[in-house]
């Protein structure tokens, strides 16, 4: 279990994170989402031990992240991983096998074999997607207890994405690995993760089950005879609303059936419930402060 308590981090005078508290259960896949500059990568780097928390603590099964024994169970794959000018897909193992005794070379070579890359080709000569695949293969082969991925699917083609997702899901099933993935691709997160944490305004604004956030709200499209206004919905639990002349699209907190009953009282010409996905839930969450 990962426990983050009252975590704050400063970049000089600028506060990047402010009192973040979050608990992540073992064997889960958590999607870390947020707008650009929200603090996702900073949080991930703090969780990996690259940065040291100014205030607060991060513990893995009760052990501090700065303890090197704890870090044996953690593997962090940043958005642009480290390799030297001469490194090849074969040579990078030399570093990791020193620190991660669990590194399974058979798995690594099985995964990279599918890429059809010359073993001696320098990584710098590989495309971004190829490099990413090599490092994901490395991460999977290490089989860490905690896997932290920053924009892991960036640069991967759809077929490879699916293959990687399946491998990662197998890790969770077979080794009880906990995966935390920071991404801007919300469809990917919804597809792949069972938990989410929205980082916004230097803190974790919301977290929980992906299924629950989409079930908590409902979305309706309405059309009126006359021009509509936001004031019509003042007494309803509106999360997000978009009024365009006679047409209104709104997200409400609560059960769809009950909200529908209340919306009928407004006498719309058209009333239609629409699918509400994680991407919309995220947009609602970060726009909460501007609503109505």
């Amino acid at each position: 279990m990962i426990k983050i308590e009252n975590l704050s981090y400063f970049f000089g005078n600028y506060q990047a994170l402010n009192g973040v508290s979050l608990t992540l259960e073992s064997g889960t896949i958590t999607g870390l989402v947020g707008v650009n500059g929200a603090g996702k990568s900073t949080l991930l780097r703090l969780m990996a031990g690259c940065y040291k928390a100014d205030i607060g603590s991060i513990t893995y099964d009760g052990e501090n992240v700065n303890d090197e024994n704890t870090r044996k169970d953690i593997f962090f794959l940043p958005d642009e991983p480290y390799y030297t000018h001469q490194d090849t897909m074969k040579s990078i193992i030399s570093m990791y096998k020193h620190f991660y005794p669990t590194l399974d070379l058979n798995t690594y070579f099985r995964l990279v074999k599918e890429l059809n890359i010359d073993e001696c080709k320098p990584l710098r000569a590989c495309s971004k997607g190829m490099r990413r695949q090599i490092y994901i293969a490395l991460a999977i082969s290490i089989r860490p207890k905690y896997l932290l991925l920053d924009e892991a699917f960036d640069g991967l083609d759809p077929a490879t994405r699916n293959k990687v997702k399946n491998e990662l899901i197998n890790m969770v099933d077979n080794y009880d690995t906990t995966i935390i993935i920071a991404s801007h691709s919300l469809r990917e997160i919804e597809d792949f993760c069972d938990k989410y944490a929205i980082v916004d305004d230097k803190n974790v604004k919301s977290c929980g089950d992906i299924s629950s956030i989409t079930e908590e709200c409902c979305k309706f499209m309405l059309a009126f005879k006359e021009e509509a206004s936001k004031e019509l919905f003042v007494n309803l639990p509106v999360v997000n609303i978009n009024v365009n002349g006679k047409f209104v699209t709104a997200v409400f907190k609560g059960e769809g059936r009950k909200i529908k009953e209340r919306l009928i009282e407004l006498s719309p010409v058209v009333l239609e419930e629409q699918a509400f996905d994680f991407e919309e839930a995220f947009i609602c969450e970060v726009k909460k402060d501007d609503k109505l």
Binding site: R45, A48, G49, C50, Y51, N66, E68, N69, T70, R71, K72, I74, F75, F76, P78, E80, P81, Y82, F99, Y100
Partner: peptide, 14 residues
């Protein structure tokens, strides 16, 4: 190099 530091500082060595 910031890219290198990410990996080097996250290795299980103090």
């Amino acid at each position: 190099n910031r890219r290198n530091a990410d990996i080097l500082f996250s290795l299980p060595v103090s």
